[in-house]
Nucleic acid binder design. Structure first.
Lengths: 116, 116
DNA sequence: GAAAACGAGAACGCTTCCGTAACGATTTTC
DNA sequence: GAAAATCGTTACGGAAGCGTTCTCGTTTTC
């Protein structure tokens, strides 16, 4: 079932959610970090550094650094691949799932409040 | 008319739009810059540095710098207030309106493609 | 099994953003 | 009209992100 939005609704939704994200101030994630996090949790595994770099269209160190930062906050976890020990598999965590659950609730709430 | 989203829909929408934003790579805006830009264009004027700082919950230099960056790209414009010459009024531009129009189209398109 | 290919991370120099603290210009207060 | 308050900006030191290049361990190739 598609979601039909008017131009004003689309931008207002983005506006209110962005504003909340800035204000919440738990050290907001970069746009890239957010994209990586969402990708890990919404697309079926496995996820590797190389794969994410290709998906986002950025270089590998960008992914490594983003995983460093998000790893410190417990949002993701890294595990060496047992079958090919060159690879690192990125794993989801409870903390990360909770973080995105809150974001989802926020978007839903802001969508519900849209009028016009 | 409110917009009803499921948890998966909400996050998938955020995911796809963020991914596009990262990939489009016209020098992506910071989360804060995006919030400022949307605020200027969606909330009735006038907008001042002090007001924006209070709204976003950040310090004034953050707003000044964001306006510098976005001003260079023609997304906003600064004009001294004639009545109180201490104030600077932030003005919208055609370039900025076009930029947000494209973003709106993107969100609408991604919303339309949502299934489940 | 030696050499080439591959994947992730570290090192480097650079750019950009951050908050605090100060500064000039302007307006308000008394 | 002198002093205090207000507004935006600049200056500064520090933190974090960027892409390029390289290093190191691992796997594949021949």
């Amino acid at each position: 079932m598609p979601v039909e939005l008017s131009a004003t609704q689309a931008l207002t939704l983005w506006h209110t959610v962005s504003l909340d994200q800035v204000r919440i101030e738990t050290g907001d994630l970069t746009l890239r970090q957010m994209a990586i996090l969402l990708h890990i949790y919404l697309v079926p595994p496995p996820h590797t550094v190389r794969g994410l770099a290709a998906t986002l269209g950025v270089t590998k160190p960008v992914i490594t650094r983003a995983l460093d930062t998000m790893g410190e906050r417990g949002l993701v976890e890294r595990v060496r691949d047992a079958r090919d020990r060159r690879n690192v598999v990125i794993k989801r965590t409870v903390t990360g799932a909770l973080y995105l659950e809150k974001l989802g609730d926020l978007i839903i709430d802001r969508g519900r409040r849209l009028s016009l």
